[in-house]
């Protein structure tokens, strides 16, 4: 249960992308903690899957990291800063280095595919460029190449609301990569997709993040997918970390601790 993830050296480019979370606590209503004193260290590469039952704080944990949710207490050290303390433009600077993939894709429906991908550059550009759609040619070039990389090269000028779920999630991944991130957060990226598409999406995230040496933290319901793609699994129950180790160390007894009950395992 306390098995540590295998040590991984820093990324090839020598940048330390590790994330250290200490005593993180979140209460939506005062006194009722969704996250109770979570401490985790994420090495600066590889994929970590967070598993656990619904309502156990996985989503809250991931959203605390890029501050879509403000933590009640604790610190999150990343690239030399405590993410929990950032405000205003410092927070935006940190956010643009953290890509996020959402369960329901969260594309801007009425924008085209390429516009959605270019949204990943908004943190780097002045407002007028977004407004006039005057993105730097280098960014546009990269957006097209990323669309090719996620297999949507022919869809660049189609409106996002015309895509299927799997295609939308590919755009979501391209948007996250477009940020040139040092960390990718994925909040249930496959929960709205069919089993085959789910595998393809996990494969895509693992491959594209892997070749760029970007660490990934992914919330996932599907334990099999977690085992298959993650280098490390964190199991949460009732707002606390109850398992932390490599997929090979995850046994049925751990799943019982994480999810409770037992009938479902047979």
């Amino acid at each position: 249960m306390d098995a540590k993830a295998p040590f991984k050296p820093a990324a090839a480019d020598g940048i330390d992308r590790s994330l250290v979370i200490r005593h993180l606590r979140k209460e939506y209503r005062s006194g009722i903690a969704v996250l109770k004193d979570v401490s985790l260290t994420f090495e600066g590469r590889g994929m970590t899957a967070i598993i656990g039952p619904s309502g156990t704080g996985k989503s809250t944990l991931v959203r605390c990291i890029n501050r879509l949710v403000d933590p009640t207490a604790g610190e999150m050290l990343f690239m030399g800063q405590d993410l929990a303390k950032l405000r205003g433009s410092a927070l935006r600077m940190a956010r643009r280095r953290i890509g996020m993939v959402f369960q329901e894709y969260n594309l801007v429906e009425r924008l085209t595919v390429i516009e959605n991908v270019l949204c990943g550059r908004l943190g780097y550009l002045p407002v007028w460029r977004a407004w006039m759609r005057k993105f730097p040619p280098g960014d546009i070039d990269r957006a097209f190449r990323l669309l090719d990389a996620v297999g949507l090269g022919d869809f660049s000028n189609i409106r996002a609301d015309q895509l299927s779920g799997g295609q939308r999630q590919r755009v979501g991944i391209a948007r996250a990569l477009m940020q040139d991130p040092d960390l990718i957060l994925a909040d249930e990226p496959t929960s709205s997709l069919d089993p085959k598409t789910s595998v393809e999406i996990m494969e895509l995230i693992a491959r594209r993040a892997g070749e760029r040496d970007i660490p990934v933290i992914v919330n996932i319901h599907n334990v099999e997918l977690a085992r298959r793609y993650a280098d490390r699994i964190v199991g949460m129950a009732k707002g606390e970390v109850v398992f932390d180790g490599p997929p090979s160390a995850l046994e049925d007894s751990h799943l019982l601790t994480i999810y409770g009950g037992e009938g479902w395992l047979e």
């Binding site: 956010r95 329901e104 949204c119 990943g120």
Partner: peptide, 12 residues
């Protein structure tokens, strides 16, 4: 959700 995703990119 759509707005949240844009905000998450660090956009002003």
């Amino acid at each position: 959700k759509q707005m949240e995703a844009v905000r998450a990119t660090g956009a002003p």
